[in-house]
Computed example of a mutant assay.
Amino acid sequence: MNITLEAIEKVMELTGVEYKTAKEALEKTDGNIDEAVKLIQPSANDIGDDVKCLIDQLKKKVEEGNVDRIQIKKDDEVILSVPVNIGIIGGIVGLATAPWALIAGSVAAFGFGCKLIVVKKDGSTDEIK
């Protein structure tokens, strides 16, 4: 089994994982890039269930109070930042699910290289896992 640096980089590029994870996946699949990518990435159904779970955890955190905004980060770059008061305004207008759908869609679109962060009013943060 000959695993090249190019193969590892390709798996890293396609999945967003770190070097070690890409190499381990290639080792488990005898150097097959396609199989390594399949091994790393969850199926579409798993993603849907995982996103629902994340959103449920997020809603619970917001209901507890003291939350200022919700951010989605990928590689320490903020991709989406939604103030919690948009959810309150949406609820008044009758669109209470719109912010949750936006967040769920963003997490699904960018994959699980993303972090869902709750920014509290005091500036501290919690990651939703």
Score class of each variant (00 low, 15 high):
Thr4Ala: 07
Leu5Thr: 15
Glu6Asp: 11
Ala7Arg: 13
Glu9Ile: 07
Lys10Phe: 08
Val11Trp: 01
Thr15Asn: 01
Val17Pro: 03
Lys20Phe: 10
Thr21Tyr: 11
Lys23His: 11
Glu24His: 12
Glu24Met: 13
Leu26Tyr: 05
Leu26Cys: 05
Glu27Gln: 15
Asp30Glu: 14
Gly31Arg: 01
Asp34His: 10
Gln41Met: 12
Gln41Ile: 10
Ala44Lys: 09
Ile47Asp: 02
Gly48Leu: 15
Asp49Pro: 05
Asp49Ile: 09
Asp49His: 12
Asp50Ile: 09
Cys53Gly: 14
Cys53Lys: 10
Cys53Gln: 13
Ile55Tyr: 01
Ile55Lys: 05
Ile55Phe: 03
Gln57Cys: 11
Lys59Pro: 00
Lys61Asp: 06
Lys61Ile: 10
Val62Gln: 03
Val67His: 03
Asp68Glu: 15
Asp68Arg: 06
Gln71Val: 01
Glu77Tyr: 14
Ile79Phe: 06
Val82Ala: 05
Val82Trp: 00
Ile86Lys: 02
Gly87Ile: 08
Ile88Pro: 07
Ile88Gly: 08
Gly94Tyr: 14
Ala98Gln: 02
Leu102Phe: 11
Ala104Arg: 07
Ser106Ile: 15
Val107Leu: 10
Ala108Tyr: 05
Ala109Met: 07
Phe110Cys: 14
Gly113Ile: 09
Gly113Tyr: 07
Cys114Phe: 00
Leu116Arg: 00
Lys120Thr: 00
Lys121Asn: 05
Asp126Lys: 13
Ile128Thr: 02
